[in-house]
Design a protein around this nucleic acid. Structure first.
Lengths: 111, 111
DNA sequence: TAGCTATATCTACTTGCATGTATATATGTA
DNA sequence: TACATATATACATGCAAGTAGATATAGCTA
């Protein structure tokens, strides 16, 4: 189940795909628009979009000869939930533990 | 500024490092404990931890010969915020736009 | 039909990066 | 000091994945 999340993360994390995702955050775009914005070769953009689509990160809609890509909210929501679920729960405790560990620095009693 | 986020994402997204992060979500661990849990070679775990530490995703504390690694909440919080900020804002609008585009399917009026 | 635009696919090439293995460093103990 | 444990570093290797470029496909227009 985390397989999916990890895979989506790795697809989004690639630098050029991350830029594409950032672009799409402000709304759906055609391939050509993305090419113009990022100054990447069109075949490269198409390939990155293919990977994003396969991972379920984006959706495609045909409009005449153009294909409009848009971000699907669900994957980002899942990533957000995954990330927040740690941060929120542990922030306090870890900060305290951090201080504790930093102060002690040696004190052998672990298994 | 998104450079940092993208870099952290790519570091976390690697399969084995993702497993390490997942492990650390339940609390700090020594290198040896991670090696036992994941059945990876110790040098590999050390190397992955190094990359995670360089990216600021984890913290190290020495305890005798052991090094205790723990997740830093801030990077995960940032990732969560980044992801949620899209999902929350656009979910409704995009769903409606999606229906619209799916229905029309052709309708040329772009520049 | 021909020709133009928008996008996708295919084939090589190359490189970043994870992996395997050996070795070094640091700390504790006898 | 010598030895064991815990972890880090160094180096060689292989492969996954990004890149470059040519070409194919699909739709529009005349």
């Amino acid at each position: 189940m985390d397989e999916l999340l990890q895979h989506r993360l790795s697809v989004i994390a690639e630098p050029n795909r991350f830029r594409i995702v950032e672009l799409l955050r402000s709304g759906p775009l055609s391939v050509g628009a993305i090419v113009d914005a990022l100054e990447l070769a069109q075949p490269h953009v198409s390939r990155h979009l293919r990977l994003l689509a396969d991972a379920g990160v984006v959706d495609v809609t045909r409009q005449a000869q153009q294909r409009i890509y848009r971000l699907r909210p669900e994957p980002l929501r899942d990533i957000g939930t995954w990330a927040q679920s740690f941060a929120v729960l542990w922030t306090e405790r870890l900060d305290r533990l951090g201080d504790f560990l930093d102060d002690t620095d040696q004190n052998g009693d672990r298994s």
